[in-house]
Design a protein around this nucleic acid. Structure first.
Length: 216
DNA sequence: AAATATATCAACCGCGCTCTA
DNA sequence: TTAGAGCGCGGTTGATATATT
């Protein structure tokens, strides 16, 4: 026998909130405060469950919420806190006034995780990702279409000659995606991008700044 | 311009914890 | 002590927006 549902779901509205619903909820909470979430929808005249009201208020309607993109300082803080606290989003959110656990969790999953991976860091342990063993590299290469490798290698060389940072970065990301450490090692101008040293490369950081918002 | 893929984020779900009778 | 109610949390889903082909 499972746990009983938090409320009678029959006849309850679900999905995105309307402006009218939002204003009903805000009006009610500002005038009455919150004693019991289960009673809020009934008293506020909403066809929602208490849980849904709570979530809407906490994640969207609270007047103290900060809107807009995360700043670099906030991102750094999230990374630092995550390294200490793990996926305890509410604990992390407690250190970032105006940000919700849901918002931080979403931002982590969609952006910061990728950013860390590109920096060669494991988003779970926050440690540098281990080099693939030679065996694994060879294994990967076996499953790589040789034509694809050739095309990528050619494009990488062209990018290096062209001097375009954007082109270089595109090729670099593709190289990383293909897990083709061997290809990178085989290209003399790209040697500085062995996993050991690529994080220190001015080329890489220039590239990141060029990515700007689209990268982050 | 249309179709398809990918990214983003609001909202939901279910579990576990805490409180209370 | 225990069972049930309510709340909060973290994982997941799905709708929408945006980018790419």
């Amino acid at each position: 026998m499972g746990r009983q549902p938090c409320c009678e779901k029959v006849g309850l509205k679900r999905g995105p909130w309307t402006i009218e619903e939002d204003s009903k909820l805000v009006d009610f909470i500002l005038n009455n405060g919150i004693q019991c979430w289960r009673l809020v929808p009934k008293l506020a005249g909403l066809m929602r469950c208490g849980k849904s009201c709570r979530l809407r208020w906490i994640n969207y309607l609270r007047p103290d919420l900060k809107r807009g993109a995360f700043t670099e300082a906030e991102e750094d803080m999230i990374i630092e806190l995550h390294s200490r606290l793990g996926n305890r989003w509410s604990k992390i959110a407690a250190h970032l006034p105006g940000r919700t656990d849901n918002e931080i969790k979403n931002h982590w999953n969609t952006r910061i995780k990728k950013k860390l991976k590109l920096l060669g860091l494991d988003p779970i342990t926050h440690k540098p990702i281990e080099h693939e063993s030679d065996q694994e590299i060879h294994h990967n290469m076996e499953f790589q279409e040789p034509e694809d490798c050739q095309i990528l290698q050619q494009k990488t060389e062209e990018a290096l000659i062209s001097g375009s940072n954007q082109a270089k970065n595109e090729c670099f990301v593709k190289n990383m995606e293909m897990g083709s450490s061997l290809m990178i090692q085989n290209l003399e101008p790209m040697e500085s991008f062995s996993v050991d040293s690529w994080m220190d490369s001015p080329f890489l950081w220039d590239g990141f700044s060029n990515f700007g918002e689209s990268f982050l």
